[in-house]
Design a protein around this nucleic acid. Structure first.
Lengths: 130, 130, 130, 130
DNA sequence: GTGGTCTAGACCACT
DNA sequence: GTGGTCTAGACCACC
C-alpha cells in the first residue's frame, strides 16, 4: 500500500491519508482484518511525521473503519461501519449539490456529470475486481 | 436573496457565501447582469463581518462569476465563466470519487448515489423553472 | 473557570481537562452559548501545551459538547448533545458494575455505594444551585 | 471460568482480565481458597500472551486478592483484602462523579442512574445466589 | 485575535 | 516491536 500524499494541497495531510486508506479498503486492496502498515513505517514511506499518521489512524478508528489492538497494530475493521445511513445519504446529496452548482458555472452539463459518475463507478469496481 | 450561513461549520464563511451566491445564479434566482446586494447590506443581513463578504465577492470576481463596476456595485457576469473546462471536469471526477468512497464506507450503493444525483439535478432544474 | 489538572496521574491530561470542562457545564459554572477560554489562554493558566488544550477542545466538539466558530473561539453548545441514549445507559451500567466489583473487594457494602451516590448527586445539584 | 477479553478495547488486556477475575470472585463463581487456572492454561484459553496473564495475576496478588504458592499455583485469598477503605471509598466517589457528569451530558437523569445502580446490585447478588 | 496543522523529538504503557 | 501522549515551536487560514 503506497498512498499518494501531496503536502502542497490545502487539504490536511492526515485527511488525504484517510481518504487514500478508505480508497484502498473500498477497492479491496486491503481486506477486512488485515493490518495497516505501522505508524512509523507509514511515516517513513510517506516522508511525513509519525504524529500525522497517528492522527489519521485515530480518526479512522473513530469512524469505525479500523480497529487498533494495543501493542500489536491497526487493522481494517471486519464489522461494517456503524453509522447513521440517513445522515450519510444527506451528506452525499449535499456534496452532489456542490458539484452540480460548480458544474453549471464551468459549463459542464448534467449529462456530463452523469457520464463522469458512471465512469468513476466503473473505475472503482474494476479496481476491486483485480 | 437570503443565503444561509452557519459559522460553526468548518467550511470558511466566505466560501459558504460563495456557494450560496453561485447556487442563486445557477437556479436563476439572480439573473445575468443583475446586481448583488452591497457588501454592507449583505454583511448586516447575515450578521457577519463586511471583510468576509468582500472576500467572497473578490473570489467570485476572480472566478469570473461576477464583475465589479467601480462606484456602482457588483453584478452577475454576462459572459460565461472563462475557465479550463478540462480541469473543471477533472475536479468533478475527483469529487465524485470522494463521494463514492465515502458511500462505500457507509453502506450506500452505487445505485443509491445515481438516484441521489438524478434527484438533485431535478431539484436544481425545477428551481430554475420557477 | 480554573480546572485542576494533575500531570502525574495516569489519565491523559487532555482527558482530565475534558472532564473538568464537562463538570463546569454540568454545574452551570459555564452556561450554554458562553465562550471557553481561548486555547492559548487556557494553556498558559494550566501550564500545559496549547496542543494539549486543542486536543481536549477538539474531542469535546466531536462529542457535541462545544462548537468552535472559526476565528472567534470555542463556545458551549446550546443544543443538547445528540447521542445514543441507549448506548450511554449501557456505558453507565458497565461503569457501575466496575464500581460494585471494586467495592466488594475493598469491603464496601452496597448500602455504602448507594449512600455515596446520593451524596454525589446532592453535591452536583448544590453546585448547580449557586 | 471463561473471562471475556476484547483486545480492541482501550483498556489493557491485563486489566480486563483482573476485572473478570474479581467479578468471578465477587459473584462466588470462584470461592476463597480455590485455585485459579494456571498461567499457561489461561493464556491458551484466551488466546493471549502468557506474560499478560502473569501480569494480571501479579497485580491481583499485589492487591491481596490472590496469593501465589510457589510450585503449586495461584489461589483466591482467604483473608479479606487489606486495603485503605477510606481511600477506596474516595475512589468510588470519584468514579460516581465521572458517571454523573457523563450522564448529564447524555441526557440521563439522576433517577435513571439510581435505578441502574439498583439493577446492577440486584444482578450481582442474584449471580452470587446461584 | 482565533483555532488548525505539522514537525521534531522525547517518554511511556502494552504485548 | 506497537500505538499514545506530551512538549516546543513554527506556519497558516480565518475573522
Amino acid at each position: 500500500m503506497l498512498p499518494r500524499i501531496d503536502p502542497t494541497r490545502s487539504e490536511p495531510i492526515y485527511a488525504q491519508l484517510m481518504k487514500e486508506i478508505k480508497y484502498s479498503i473500498a477497492t479491496g486492496m486491503i481486506g477486512a482484518g488485515e493490518p495497516l502498515p505501522s505508524v512509523r513505517q507509514m511515516a517513513v514511506q510517506l516522508r511525513i511525521n509519525p504524529n500525522t499518521v497517528a492522527r489519521a489512524y485515530r480518526e479512522l478508528e473513530r469512524e469505525g473503519v479500523v480497529v487498533t489492538i494495543r501493542g500489536k497494530g491497526v487493522y481494517v475493521s471486519d464489522a461494517p461501519r456503524s453509522s447513521d445511513k440517513g445522515r450519510a445519504l444527506a451528506d452525499v446529496k449535499h456534496a452532489l449539490d456542490s458539484i452540480l452548482v460548480e458544474a453549471f458555472h464551468t459549463g459542464i452539463s448534467a449529462d456530463e456529470v452523469r457520464e463522469a459518475l458512471e465512469q468513476r463507478i466503473k473505475n472503482l469496481k474494476s479496481a476491486r475486481a483485480k
